[in-house]
Nucleic acid binder design. Structure first.
Lengths: 255, 255
DNA sequence: CGATAGTTTGATATCCTTCAAAACCTGTGG
DNA sequence: CCACAGGTTTTGAAGGATATCAAACTATCG
């Protein structure tokens, strides 16, 4: 039973942040009971929307993105299984960006009310989810560093290092390989590069025996060397498991 | 009395997000009672720290930044008067970045306990602060778009547009001019550019009569033209004032 | 008034983009 | 099972934006 819970990527992810009770885990599992399938390329949430529910990614990849007037696109975050789209979206008037699917995906839509009840009744979950949003922010900051300071080669290396750890956190790596269902164009939109340049960068990595990338599966042959190239310090992912926090008001994520 | 409160940048800022009661305002004012002065160039919080207090900027500019192994620096956010450094810092084990002063500054240090009490006793403040952190995140996303997709000229224009509105929000603009106490080097570290290239970009803007920038004071002569150049859409700053939200559990910022 | 930090300038190198076409997949319908 | 269509990857040649390096110039401040 406990083992079954661990197949749920959300349980897996939050469990790596904090100690979840069996009760918490059962509830999280309940949240992902009814799921919908969506096709790659569709939007889960469009810019300007005021969503009435939170989406939990079960299978597949999604992204936050923005399209500029000139048609340029910037991807600002990847969402992978176990990631929740915008717990806090209830507060702001309208989405200032869109969330789109990078691959076919399976998604659970969690109504606002259910989400709020869960947070109230399960302080452990609230705690873990708040932790998760802080990590999302840290990741965003690191992406800024990545685009701002690293050249294409190290930039790509850094992204790959990050995604390997994030996929591993939810149990989706197999012998150092994991699914990376992205076109070179999408990689370019992520890193502020042209698809042409992404292509040449990937080729260089392949030529150096660093990676294999085919059919949407990435293998990093020597993660240590890759990390050295990227100057990758996993610190910002805050993956270190912590003991449960004793909080005066557990419902208050500011605590 | 009410007028006096409005000289406090924090009151001003939060008041532009939500309706604050006089009681809320008094409390916010109380938070900034005792202040310390710090010199430009010093760190308020170093990477790896686990701060025991929250800092409120009263006067001057600060920034979040990271230094890479090769010595490159990336500035990830500016903090201006009325901004709080890391309400949520209590949760994570250690800071994954530093907060440093870009100018001489006056700062109020708010102990963790005081902060938590304030949030509990003043739901309106908790609400507004949560809103503010969401806006900080939106700003961060927009910086990513800026660095990822715009060339140096538009990138600079966009940053200037943003800072004008943020400074205006806390009442620190005078006839379209505002303090911008940054060296060209620091601007470069912000936008992923060389100080040399920042210099040439600024010169171009000056030559075109777009700006004056001297002695740390920036004047944008034609904000509309500047916005057009940048493709600036202020939406992400979520500056539209909202009516107070009725929340079931006001202490829960997820609501 | 000298010291120090910041700005400006010029010349050159590099990374990355642009454009355009060819090669390669992958799935679909005949 | 083949052929074709559309998207994706790959390749080449050339141009542009930005970096690098080094030096001169200019504020500012004790």
């Amino acid at each position: 039973m406990k083992g079954a819970f661990m197949t749920n990527p959300l349980v897996r992810k939050l469990g790596s942040f904090t100690m979840l009770s069996d009760d918490d885990k059962a509830r999280l599992n309940g949240l992902s009971r009814s799921t919908q399938r969506h096709k790659a390329g569709t939007d889960l949430i469009a810019q300007g929307d005021r969503p009435r529910e939170v989406f939990l990614l079960i299978e597949g990849w999604a992204c936050r993105y923005k399209v500029l007037p000139d048609g340029n696109r910037q991807i600002m975050a990847y969402l992978i299984p176990g990631d929740l789209c915008d717990i806090h979206v209830f507060i702001l008037k309208a989405m200032d960006h869109a969330i789109g699917l990078l691959s076919d995906a399976r998604v659970a839509a969690i109504p606002k009310r259910v989400m709020l009840d869960t947070l109230r009744e399960h302080p452990g979950i609230a705690q873990a989810l708040f932790w998760a949003t802080l990590v999302d922010e840290a990741v965003l900051r690191e992406w800024l560093v990545n685009i701002g300071q690293r050249d294409a080669y190290r930039r790509t290396a850094h992204l790959f290092c990050e995604m390997r750890l994030r996929m591993r956190q939810v149990g989706l790596t197999h012998d150092g390989a994991f699914s990376l269902p992205l076109t070179q164009e999408q990689l370019g939109d992520t890193m502020g590069l042209t698809s042409v340049h992404v292509n040449r960068t990937l080729q260089k990595m392949r030529a150096e025996g660093l990676i294999s990338l085919q059919g949407g599966v990435l293998t990093i042959h020597d993660p240590d060397r890759m990390a050295a190239i990227a100057g990758f310090d996993p610190n910002y992912l805050h993956l270190d498991r912590r003991e449960p926090l004793q909080v005066s008001d557990p419902a208050a994520p500011f605590a």
